[in-house]
Design a binder for these strands. Sequence first.
DNA 1: GTGAAAGCGCTAACAC
DNA 2: GTGTTAGCGCTTTCAC
Lengths: 358, 358
Amino acid sequence: MGMGSDMTSKGRVTIREVAERAGVSMATVSRVLSGNHPVPASTRARVLRAARDLDYVANAHARALVGGGRKMVAVVLRQVTSPFYAQVAEGVEAEAAARGWLCLVGTTGGDPGRELEFVQLMREEGAQLVILVGGVVEDDAYRERVAHYAQALASSGARLVLCGRPAPDPDIPALVVEFDNEAGARAITGHLLSAGHRRIVFLGGLPGNTALDARVAGYRAALAEHGLGPEAAHVVDCGLGRAAGHRAMTELLKGAENPGRFTAVFAGDDMVAAGALRAIADAGLRVPADISVVGYNDIPLAEDFNPPLTTVRTPAEELGRAAVRIALRDPEHAAGAHHLLGTHIVVRDSVQPPPPGA
Amino acid sequence: MGMGSDMTSKGRVTIREVAERAGVSMATVSRVLSGNHPVPASTRARVLRAARDLDYVANAHARALVGGGRKMVAVVLRQVTSPFYAQVAEGVEAEAAARGWLCLVGTTGGDPGRELEFVQLMREEGAQLVILVGGVVEDDAYRERVAHYAQALASSGARLVLCGRPAPDPDIPALVVEFDNEAGARAITGHLLSAGHRRIVFLGGLPGNTALDARVAGYRAALAEHGLGPEAAHVVDCGLGRAAGHRAMTELLKGAENPGRFTAVFAGDDMVAAGALRAIADAGLRVPADISVVGYNDIPLAEDFNPPLTTVRTPAEELGRAAVRIALRDPEHAAGAHHLLGTHIVVRDSVQPPPPGA
DNA sequence: GTGAAAGCGCTAACAC
DNA sequence: GTGTTAGCGCTTTCAC
């Protein structure tokens, strides 16, 4: 391949060295490399040859400084090890790659401080698009913070998109793309209700968190639609995560004889469901014979749970793709726009009518 | 908070504007902001004030160009949605964040072309550290490609680390950090053997892939240690992934009455195990009563499989952390170094002695 | 202690 | 067609 053979001085090869070797000016090299200016084939070949011999790579920073840089999109999420977030990131990445954009993923561990830090960083790096993913508790601090992000980003020509979290104010220059959590929750609660369940507990509430609040709302709405009073609702605010689900379910189960208390559980997401499933098994009960369980998100391994989990499918990768696609489609129209992506139930083996005696 | 109130011209605020507002020179602003030069408190305060009022953020590209940029590490992997890879990425990210470094993750989908493209990109961006993660088939193209990466990166002062894949040549300036796949495979195969299994199939071979080949080698070694001849080994080269595992297992099961053929399966990784588990259940057989199954990697949801999977734990996040830690520790010593991380078995419920009649 | 000036590697006018 | 020149925003000598 012949590369690396002509390394001269240590450090990166610059356009100047390529120019010297090809016997042309830096400008010509630049023109050949960007290909946006007519250059005779012979010159062109000489330049390309020199560049290859020297194993030249452009300096992205110099290029960016002068305006011709690569576009960049940044995704900010809690953690990549969450199957759901990983899928969203993959969607963003795929859509970015398809456009030749660079994709940077940052994780915050749920800490607003790190989120702010990362957004700041992206401003420094000149990202064109910043995508914040995941539900949050919507308090004043949140609203103020996001309003600041949006304004700051907008003032330098960048765009902010909120995935699964609300815009603090419709006038703020931010785009929101999310799932219809309420509809999904209503549908799956309806599924449980149709199977005959009347005492369903919602496990994994997180008051103030917009995504969970919407699911709880959907759950309550479904209950009401089936003629049950508000007292039929039983939401356990244990938050998300497998551990939380396990802990809360264990607690619930030992509170009293279970069968008298509830016959089904609607877990706030599939990880909570995983924990609940384990807790139920540990208590010597069986799903779905004794208790039915449903989850939310349909993460890739939900079908491998014991039993395979009935859950609502939220096309996470599509959420990521949609975020960049929509943000890039009509820049002008974006401010304040709100896009809702649909979801649907996937039925597996974790639901069954309540046991006869219940 | 007062920010955003003094936005002047569109576009980013520069250091010059801050200087004007504070009534000092650009140099002074720079000194205050980097904090590496003594500046009187009063001046300092004025500058800081101006910067805050203007909501100034430095231009990372300009900074990088002149040498004072933020360090950056890049991780390249097949996909973020693989639980194992996601954990490695998280480890790298955590270690990078702890040092104030930027972490960029790129995905290739397993395509060497995209891998090359991404490494090139990282050269352009001036990454100090590039980490390639995951097993590969080690052919001449691979060796040549990686040798090129290593040399190119090294020539501009950057470092290459290979995680779970071999260095093409010990003299190449690359560091390798990986798990002792052979030892892990030997241990878990021994676990199966100790339970009384003699006919164990290895599901998920991928000839040429270094990680899988090592596991197969460990499997064979364990068989030999227990006095079994080479003919006792039965490896199915179906490759990785849940789908592959499911397909191969289904095939295996319908080949003949199973009990006469094998009593245990060693899946190349946990995803393959997931597929195998499902196939076995679909065939009306039970794990571990009829067939025992073990996996590899101990992904986060392995304990939620049916039954909870006995597998070998490869501390993936630690792999990521170790990669950056070691690479940054002794730069000089790095070239050609080879670090092996230990693994251990985690016993759950998918193994049991073979059924009496088998 | 602080300012002026040079220059990082590149692109884009503007000449010829 | 191709070279010359002027910056992009910043840090850092080098003077004062």
